[in-house]
């Protein structure tokens, strides 16, 4: 290890030991909203750097979606017969499952940052607390965007095609990402409520696996046992998958649709879901963050 400069050297540069000469640095003039945006960007950038620097995240973001697309297409595709072909049916399901799981990262990362003391460092700085959460959920949005790109590329190679319009395609992608973004806020809230990051990982696995599998994501639901079929029809993941399928033009004419209101109005259901998640968990998370020191 190299040695630290002597106090003489340090003093001569005017930074250490020279209070009289170099006064406290004052913030640049700025508005509250300007500072909030700046803080949000700095926090987002920090999380983006982490995507590049931590190999686990990159594998989770890029390789796992490729693996899922290929596995499901070739393994289930051989056994499941749906109108229009299984690949076309599957892709919206894979998209939905991947972005919902991608959102859980906000929970475990929030819990990890709390544990590591990074959050405490932020809380001694004059930054906006809400910006920490904005940065966190923005990070997930980027991760999910990358995953979507990779999955779409892989899907295209194995024969998936968007059969609607550019508008439909963009709307479908936006709906998937927006739902996941809203879900990130719920996960961020949970991340601040648990004692260790592992709890988030384990619980989200236990909850989200059934939630994404007891849905129309991977199999047609009309032949499921009645309780599962009803659950699946009311499952928000089903609405998300159905919306994406419709917007991508991946629903051939004559495909049966469930009787539940959510199954009949999938896009509206998802939009309501997004609104509810954001309206509840944005203020709740911000309040939770502000109250971190009060327990």
């Amino acid at each position: 290890m190299s040695t630290v400069r002597s106090s003489g050297t340090a003093g001569s540069t005017g930074g250490l030991g020279a209070r009289g000469a170099s006064a406290t640095l004052q913030p640049e003039p700025g508005t509250a909203i300007g500072r909030f945006l700046s803080d949000g960007w700095v926090a987002t950038r920090r999380n983006l750097m982490k995507i590049i620097r931590v190999p686990d995240i990159l594998v989770f973001t890029l390789l796992q979606p490729i693996m899922f697309v290929l596995l499901f297409t070739f393994v289930f595709g051989a056994a499941i017969d749906v109108p229009g072909g299984y690949t076309s049916f599957l892709m919206a399901g894979i998209f939905a499952q991947t972005v919902v799981f991608g959102s859980t990262y906000s929970g475990s990362a929030m819990a990890q940052d709390l544990k590591d003391g990074i959050i405490d460092r932020f809380r001694t700085l004059p930054m906006s607390g809400a910006a920490v959460l904005v940065g966190r959920t923005n990070g997930d949005l980027v991760i999910n965007g990358l995953s979507m790109l990779v999955m779409m590329g892989t899907g295209f190679i194995v024969g998936w095609r968007v059969e609607s319009s550019l508008g439909g395609f963009l709307a479908g992608v936006a709906l998937l990402l927006l739902f996941a973004y809203a879900f990130s806020w719920l996960m961020a809230f949970l991340g601040m409520s648990v004692r260790s990051p592992e709890i988030i990982n384990n619980v989200s696995f236990l909850v989200l696996f059934p939630l994404t599998f007891i849905s129309n994501a991977f199999v047609p639901t009309e032949n499921l046992p009645t309780p599962l079929r009803i659950f699946s029809e009311w499952n928000p993941v089903s609405a998300l998958v159905q919306s994406a399928r419709e917007l991508f033009g991946n629903v051939p004419a004559g495909t049966p649709v469930g009787d539940a209101w959510t199954a009949q109005n999938p896009i509206l259901t998802v939009l309501i879901g997004i609104a509810v998640l954001l309206l509840v968990f944005v203020p709740l998370s911000i309040a939770k963050f502000a109250a971190l020191g009060k327990k």
Partner: peptide, 26 residues
């Protein structure tokens, strides 16, 4: 100190620059 950690995934320079930004130095 022990409780106010630095970010392990950022470089030394990035850590300090981030703190400066969060003090709103520009």
């Amino acid at each position: 100190g022990q409780y106010a950690a630095v970010d392990e995934n950022l470089t030394g320079f990035e850590n300090l620059e981030m703190v400066g930004r969060l003090y709103h130095l520009g």
